[in-house]
Design a protein around this nucleic acid. Structure first.
Lengths: 345, 345
DNA sequence: TTGTAGGCGTTATCAC
DNA sequence: GTGATAACGCCTACAA
C-alpha cells in the first residue's frame, strides 16, 4: 500500500474492465448500473484496497465534510468534554472536526478563521473569545458558511447555543443568600467573555432580588494565575467586614481560593462557605466536597453538532436561526453553611 | 464574500491582466516574474480578498498539510495538554492537526486510520490503544505515511516518543519503600496499554530491588468507574495485613481511592500513604496534597510535533528512526508518611 | 446500461 | 518574463 501504488478509481475501473465513469457510479450507487457490474467493481475495489480520495472528492463536490471549531483552550476540561462529544456526533454523520485554539486572542481567532476558510470547512462552531466579533461571523454566515455560536454573542440572524450561566450564578448566589450570607465574594476569570458577564449578571440579580447592594470591593474579575487567585482570596478575607462566602466562577478560581484559604488555616465551611460554578473532580473530591453548579458537557457538544448538522443538511433553505439554552443543575455538597457557623477568630 | 463569489486565481489573473500561470507564479514567488507584475497581481489578490483553495492545492501538490492524531480520549487532561502543544507547534509549521478518539477500541482505531488515509493526512501520530497494532502502523510507515508513536509499542524501524512511565513508577515505589512501606497496593486502569504495563513493571522492579515478593492480591489493574475504584480501595484496606500505602496510576484511580478512604474515615497519611503517577489539580490541591510523579505535557506535545515535522521535511530520506524518552519528576508533598504513623484501629 | 469528456482550482512544464 | 496546457482524482452531464 505504498504511496506510489495508491490505487485510484482508474485502477479499479481497469481491474473491473469498465470505464471510470461506470466505476464511480457503481461505487456510489448513483445512476443506473447493472447489479452485475456493481458487484464486479466492488470486488475489484476491495481487492485493490481502493480508498476514494477525499481531497479530490472535496474539490469536485465542493464540500470537505469538515467542520471547524474555535475554542479558547482545547485543554480546558470544559471545552475538551464538549469537543469530544461534538466530534463523536459529527463523525457519525460523516464529518470530521478540525479544532483550533484562539488562546482568547483576537488575532489568533482571525488567523484560524482564515485558515479554516482556506481549508474550505463546511461549517464553523465558534466558542467564546475576547473579540466578540459578532459582525464578522454574521457576515461569514450570510456568505454561505454556516456558523454556530457557542457561549458567545452573536447576531440576531444566527444560530447558537448557550449554557445558562446567568441562571447558574443566580441560583448559586441565592443558595448562599438563603443560608444567610450577605457578603459574598465573587472571583471570576473574566468579565468580558460572554459566560463571565452572564455569571456576574446572575450574581448581581440575585443580590438585587434581596435588596442587597452590589459591593464592588467583593468582586475580583480578571484572569490570573492560581497563585494570584490565592492571594486575592486572602486579601478578600482581610476586608472588614470580611466576606462569609466565596462564589468561584471556574476551576482555576476555585483551586486558587481553596489554596489560599488552606494556606491561611481557614476551614470550609466553618470559617467561610465556598461554592463553584462549573463542576470538576476537584470540587467533587475535595474535603469537604464543594457545592457546585454543573451542566452536561456531553449534551452541549452533541447539541452543537446537531445544530450544525441541521444547518448543513438543510442546504440553502435559510431556515430561521435556532437557539438552544442548556440548563444547569445545582449540586449541594458540604462546603456551604450559614455564616458565623463558628465565632470569628 | 458569498460562496458564489468566492474568488479564484482566475479572477485574480483577470483583474491583474495576466494569465493564471503568471498569477500563480507571482503569488507564490516561484519562477521568473517581473517585480512589476508581482505587485500588480498581489494588489489584485488583496483587493479581491483572494484566498488560495487549500483543497485544490492539496490535490495538485499531493500534500494536505494535515497530520492526524489518534488518542484514546481527547477529554483526558493528559492527552488534552499534549494535543494542545502539538497543535501549536504544527501550526507554526503550517500544518493542521486532525484529532480522533479511539475510545481505546481496535475497531475505532481502524476506522480512524482509514478516515485519515482517505483524507490524505501527511502524517500520523498514534497514541496508546488496546490494539497495539504495531505491524499495521509499521506497514503504513513503510508505505509512505510517516507514523510517530506515542506511549505505544511500535516496530524497530519506527520513530516515537515515550514518557518514562517505568521509571516514574519505580521512583514512586522506591520512595514508599524508603519510608518503610512493604505492603504497597497498586491501582491501575490498565495492564495492557503500554503506559500501564510499564508502570507495573517499574513497581515490580522497585520491589524486587528490595527483595520483596510481588503480592498479586495487592494489585488491581482494570478499568473501572470511580465508584468501583473506591470500593476496590476499601476491599484492599480490609486485607490482613492491610496495605500501608497506595500507589495510584492515573487520575481516576487517585480520585476513587481518595473517595473510598474518605468514606471510611481513613486519613491520609496517618492511616495510609497515597501517591500518584500523573499530576493533576486534584493531587495538588487536595488536603493533604498528594505526592505525585509528573511530566511536562507541553514538551511531550512539542516533541511529538517536532518528530513529525522532521520526518515530514526530510522527505524520502529514510533517516534512522528517532526515539525520545521523556523524563518524569517526583514531587514530594504531604500524603506520604512512614507506616504505622498512627496505631492501627 | 455504459463510455466519453469536461471541469472543480491549483501548480508545473513547456514553448514562446 | 509570460502564456498556454496538462495534470492531480473524482463526479456527472451528455451521448451512445
Amino acid at each position: 500500500m505504498s504511496d506510489r501504488s495508491r490505487k485510484t478509481i482508474k485502477d479499479v475501473a481497469a481491474a473491473a474492465g469498465v470505464s471510470i465513469g461506470t466505476a464511480s457510479r457503481a461505487l456510489n450507487r448513483t445512476g443506473r448500473v447493472s447489479e452485475a457490474t456493481v458487484i464486479r467493481v466492488t470486488k475489484a475495489a476491495q481487492k485493490l484496497g481502493y480508498q476514494p480520495d477525499a481531497i479530490a472528492q472535496s474539490l469536485r463536490l465542493k464540500s470537505t465534510k469538515v467542520v471547524g471549531m474555535l475554542v479558547t483552550d482545547l485543554s480546558n476540561p470544559f471545552f475538551a468534554g464538549v469537543i469530544r462529544a461534538a466530534e463523536k456526533r459529527l463523525q457519525q454523520a460523516g464529518y470530521a472536526l478540525l479544532v483550533g485554539n484562539t488562546d482568547n486572542e483576537k488575532a489568533r481567532e482571525r488567523f484560524l478563521i482564515d485558515l479554516f476558510q482556506r481549508r474550505r470547512v463546511d461549517g464553523l462552531i465558534a466558542g467564546p473569545c475576547e473579540s466578540e466579533d459578532a459582525e464578522m461571523l454574521e457576515e461569514l454566515d450570510r456568505g454561505g458558511l454556516p456558523v454556530i455560536g457557542f457561549d458567545r454573542d452573536f447576531g440576531a440572524g444566527q444560530s447558537g447555543l448557550h449554557v445558562d450561566h446567568r441562571r447558574a450564578a443566580f441560583e448559586a448566589t441565592r443558595h448562599l443568600l438563603n443560608l444567610g450570607h450577605e457578603r459574598i465574594a465573587l472571583l471570576s476569570s473574566s468579565s468580558t467573555l460572554s459566560p463571565g458577564r452572564e455569571r456576574i449578571a446572575g450574581y448581581a440579580a440575585a443580590l438585587e432580588e434581596r435588596g442587597i447592594a452590589l459591593n464592588n470591593a467583593l468582586i475580583r474579575a480578571h484572569k490570573s494565575s492560581m497563585e494570584f487567585v490565592a492571594s486575592e482570596a486572602l486579601s478578600l478575607m482581610s476586608l472588614r467586614p470580611a466576606p462569609t462566602a466565596f462564589l468561584c466562577l471556574g476551576t482555576r478560581m476555585l483551586a486558587g481560593t481553596l489554596q489560599g484559604l488552606r494556606q491561611n488555616g481557614l476551614s470550609v465551611p466553618d470559617d467561610v462557605s465556598v461554592l463553584t460554578v462549573g463542576d470538576t473532580d476537584l470540587a467533587r473530591l475535595y474535603a469537604p466536597s464543594i457545592s457546585a453548579v454543573t451542566w452536561d458537557l456531553e449534551s452541549v457538544g452533541q447539541m452543537l453538532a446537531e445544530l450544525m448538522l441541521r444547518r448543513l443538511e438543510e442546504g440553502e433553505s435559510e431556515s430561521e436561526p435556532r437557539r438552544i439554552m442548556i440548563p444547569t443543575q445545582f449540586i449541594d455538597r458540604e462546603s456551604c453553611a450559614p455564616p458565623g457557623h463558628r465565632p470569628e477568630t
